[in-house]
Simulated scan of single mutants.
Amino acid sequence: MMQTEDIRIGPEGLGGFLTVPDKARGLIIFAHGSGSSRHSPRNAYAARSFEQLGFATLLFDLLTEGEAGDRRNVFDIALLAKRVVLAVDWARQQTRLQNLPIGVFGASTGGGAALAAAAASPHIGAVVSRGGRPDLAGDALPHVRAPSFLIVGGNDREVLALNEAAAARMTCEHRISVVPNASHLFEEPGTLDKVLALSGAWFSKHLAPAGRETIPLPMA
């Protein structure tokens, strides 16, 4: 049975939950959105989905409690991206994790932070943005090299337009997938599971070691 550990990252002591299955095939680091944290039931559900595919997961708070009290920090993509890179560097120093390919799963503002982090760190091998704001990555977008998957709800029209504009600036391998009849948080029955199936296939494809079988990417 997999055990989830409480861990601390960096000099700020950012709290996190780390789960590592036997013979893990990669590590998925979560970059949550504004108003969320490592305690999010939605993120925990997503983590269990990735763990069933053999991925280790790291859910951590991008901000300290004091920092989160200042709303400016919640939308400071440069700061959030630095914290994602901090988590990547922390993972690469852990014996159990240091050889695992790393993906980042971002949501809302965390989608922008994930992409900005991918532009800054060569150690991020794939990115998925769920209902994210990749546009917030700004001038970092053309510098992202990690294959990036932008997943948006069909009813989230404003965010879809922002994703399309961001994708037009990206030069890496990237894809947009629209989940029909889904709102921003994918609260409609079956829509979050659709997101996780798409995300799991993307990570399986792009974080797979040479010679390992990958999961075919489902059609949206």
Rank of each mutant, 00 (worst) to 15 (best):
F50T: 04
H32Y: 06
N99F: 07
S37F: 02
L79G: 06
A91M: 05
S40R: 11
G33M: 06
R42Y: 07
N43W: 02
Y45K: 13
Q98H: 10
A46L: 07
A31R: 01
L86M: 15
Q93S: 13
F75L: 07
L80R: 01
D76K: 05
N73K: 05
R72H: 07
L59W: 10
F30I: 11
N73S: 07
W90G: 01
D89T: 14
A56V: 01
L53T: 01
R72W: 02
S49L: 03
L53M: 14
N43I: 08
T57L: 09
A46R: 06
A81K: 00
H32N: 05
A46H: 03
W90T: 06
R48W: 13
D89N: 15
L97F: 08
R83N: 11
A31L: 08
A56Y: 00
D89W: 11
Q93F: 11
A44Y: 15
E65V: 08
R71N: 11
A56D: 04
Q98N: 10
R83S: 11
D70R: 10
E67W: 09
L62E: 00
R96V: 12
E51T: 14
D70Y: 15
N99S: 12
V85P: 00
A68E: 10
I77R: 00
E67Q: 15
V74H: 04
R96L: 15
R96H: 14
P41N: 10
F60G: 00
L79S: 04
L97A: 07
L86S: 14
S34D: 06
Q98F: 09
Q93T: 14
I29A: 02
R48K: 15
D61S: 07
G66P: 00
A78E: 14
G54D: 10
S34V: 12
L80V: 00
Y45W: 13
I29D: 01
N43M: 10
E65P: 03
L53V: 05
H39W: 12
A56F: 04
A44V: 15
D76C: 05
A68N: 12
L63D: 12
G54C: 11
V74Q: 11
L62I: 04
K82P: 05
S37L: 02
R71W: 12
R92Q: 13
I29H: 06
